[in-house]
Design a protein around this nucleic acid. Structure first.
Length: 590
RNA sequence: CCGUCCGUAGCUCAACCGGAUAGAGCACCGGCCUUCUAAGCCGGGGGUUGUGGGUUCGAGUCCCGCCGGGCGGGCCA
């Protein structure tokens, strides 16, 4: 049996409060003081009451302490500072956490299933399947995956979703790029546009098509270019003017239309091939990264089932749409957006925003209590219009939370690694994983709040020293495994150890650290902040190493040894539980 | 110009939705090291939280101005 010191103390305080101020309504706040001299828990209850009672908070604190029922778990109660009441727990109240951890095992720290079994969806990565994932996606993937794990562990029912943008112009550009590279294989060159996809993977797909279907999709370059507006000449410095950029886009669209005309039915094949290949590559990359999805949701399916048209029609029916310049506009300004947004162009095509409205409406129809979108920070201007559309559809926009993930800069040997997206020279997630490993990759991404720009130190991530936080945490785990192996006894006997043998300051501090785990999880889940788990693990590992350096775990005295090993096993369990939430391995040897 | 996020030790970052003397890790300085239980260990200095006001018992945290930076402001995605 375990008890929760926090609720225990809250109970004692509530009794004292009722006695001092009958009928008082106050929230009992208990926090862990930063300084050990302030005990294990502190409450600001007296300061809270002082405002209403217009009385010296220290006096109120004295009365509260006088009325506090005696408890065997509490060793000392002190009044300090402006009127804080500090509690120091008895050693037995601290060490019992070891028992609780051993009892809980892999479930220690897990939140109770919330009332109504709240369903949450986490949508993340959702990168266009037009090329390899880059390091920015890696951060979103690490964040989303561990947030989802965290929410599941905290008691939510979680659905991990990837939104596949398989319907837009970007996909057309990828298909066109592939086809142009394919034509090159037959010696007939259409100048490759600078705004088409440059990466080597495009050539690979072209070669695959050539191997499978020979010259079936070949058309003369002259025919391709016949009715396409010309591309501007490449400026000497490579910098195109605004007009030239527009010309480039028009040229690209012309090529896409030409390809569709010439290929006819076959366009769908090239398009589908490119999509299938890139999506498979992306999926494989994420699987290798340890990131899994429950659902891959196709944007195109929203069009195929008429849901996009339906969503726009629904907005129209409710009077939130007007016509201007031949396009249909959603009056998002009525819901706090800066300006109104086009949902259907004058050429009849829906905008990306239209499909996103349909997508979010669909999410809400699926009955989630909470919908979490994880976007790149460059999308922040998008939040207002999506929430506005939900409101316009009479959906509860408060159920949608958007987490923005800031950008990543890589550093190697102290120097910034340049990542120009132009000409496909960016560093891919795959390259990063190959260089620093999955564990360091995931952990480093999570060592920072997601809304802060991240400087990723690849040199540090690879180092096998105490400077490297991943190494330190994993090493603590491996070290415990090593000690247990050297001991060679039966772990199943350790829960019976006499925990009263744990008396050292470092041991009791370590126990207190273990006790923080459940509340760390709960807070991290509530704030969507997996980084706090990473910070916690780093501190737990540091506490353990400090203890290990100070005391011999395999003590001479049998009872002491067993108690210490029980504590070590509890530390190992919490390290495992925490690392699992971050998607980082807990190795037995290093 | 407008919107938005941010500014904390030399560096990289924390700080439990207003609480005590703002915390870690690197780096720096000073000691210890013929401990096999594996990254050496222990200690120390370092701050007007960008800046100026405001709110109150109390502000890194909330409000306003300024300075500096990131990101947005497409009938692109």
């Amino acid at each position: 049996m375990s008890f929760d010191p926090k609720s225990q103390l809250a109970g004692l305080l509530r009794i004292a409060l009722e006695s001092v101020v009958p009928g008082a309504v106050a929230e009992i706040q208990l926090e862990r003081p930063k300084q050990t001299a302030h005990g294990d828990f502190a409450t600001n209850l007296a300061l809270q009451l002082a405002r209403a009672a217009k009385e010296n908070p220290r006096k109120i604190a004295e009365r509260l302490v006088r009325e506090l029922p005696k408890s065997p778990w509490v060793e000392k109660v002190e009044i300090a500072g402006a009127g804080f009441i500090n509690f120091t727990l008895a050693p037995a109240a601290k060490t019992q956490i070891v028992q609780a951890v051993l009892d809980g095992g892999v479930d220690f720290g897990k939140g109770a299933v919330l009332a109504g079994g709240r369903k949450v969806q986490v949508e993340f990565v959702s990168a266009n399947p037009t090329g390899p994932l880059h390091v920015g996606h890696g951060r979103g993937a690490a964040y989303g995956a561990s947030l989802a794990s965290l929410l599941a562990f905290a008691g939510y029912e979680v659905c991990r979703e990837y939104y596949v943008n398989d319907a837009g112009r970007q996909m057309d550009i990828l298909a066109l790029s592939t086809w142009l590279r394919y034509l090159e294989l037959f010696g007939d060159f259409v100048p490759f546009p600078p705004n088409a996809y440059q990466g080597g993977y495009v050539r690979e797909m072209a070669e695959q098509i050539q191997a499978a279907h020979r010259d079936r999709y070949v058309h003369p370059a002259a025919a391709v270019l016949a009715s396409v507006p010309p591309a501007p000449a490449r400026p000497d410095d490579g910098a195109y003017s605004k007009e030239e950029k527009d010309q480039l886009e028009a040229h690209l669209d012309g090529l896409i239309n030409a390809a569709k005309d010439l290929l006819g039915e076959d366009w769908a094949y090239v398009h589908q091939h490119a999509l299938t290949e890139q999506l498979a590559d992306c999926r494989e990359d994420l699987e290798g990264y340890g990131v899994h999805f429950d659902c891959w949701f196709s944007e195109r399916s929203l069009y195929d089932t008429g849901m996009v048209a339906k969503a726009v029609a629904e907005l129209e029916k409710r009077g939130h749409i007007y016509l201007q310049d031949g396009a249909k506009w959603f009056r998002s300004t009525a819901f706090g957006d800066e300006k109104d947004r086009v949902v259907q162009r004058d050429n009849g095509l829906f905008t990306y925003f239209a499909s996103d409205i349909a997508y979010h409406a669909n999410k809400f129809e699926r009955g989630f209590d909470k919908v979490i979108d994880i976007w790149g920070a460059d999308h922040h201007g998008y939040i207002a219009r999506v929430k506005g559309a939900l409101q316009a559809l009479d959906l509860d926009a408060a159920k949608l939370d958007v987490a923005l993930v800031q950008f990543v800069s890589l550093f190697r040997d102290g120097a910034k690694v340049s990542m120009s997206t132009r000409s496909g020279e960016f560093v891919t997630l795959r390259e990063l994983r190959a260089e620093v490993g999955n564990d360091a990759c995931r952990f480093f991404y999570l060592l920072r709040r997601c809304d802060q720009a991240l400087d990723f130190d690849m040199t540090l991530a690879k180092s096998e020293t105490s400077d490297n936080p991943v190494y330190s945490v994993q090493y603590a785990h491996a070290r415990i495994c090593s000690v247990l192996a050297q001991w060679g006894g039966k772990e199943s006997e350790l829960p019976a150890a006499d925990l009263a043998q744990l008396q050292g300051a470092k041991e009791l501090a370590l126990c207190a650290r273990l006790a923080e785990f459940p509340e760390t999880i709960a807070a991290a889940a509530q704030e969507y902040a997996p980084h706090t788990v990473a910070f916690y693990l780093r501190e737990l590992a540091a506490d353990f190493h400090g203890w290990y350096n100070a005391e011999r775990l395999l003590a001479e005295d049998e009872a002491v040894k067993r108690a210490r090993l029980a504590l070590a096993v509890a530390v190992r369990q919490v390290l495992q539980n925490g690392l699992r939430l971050l998607g980082v391995a807990a190795p037995e040897t290093m």
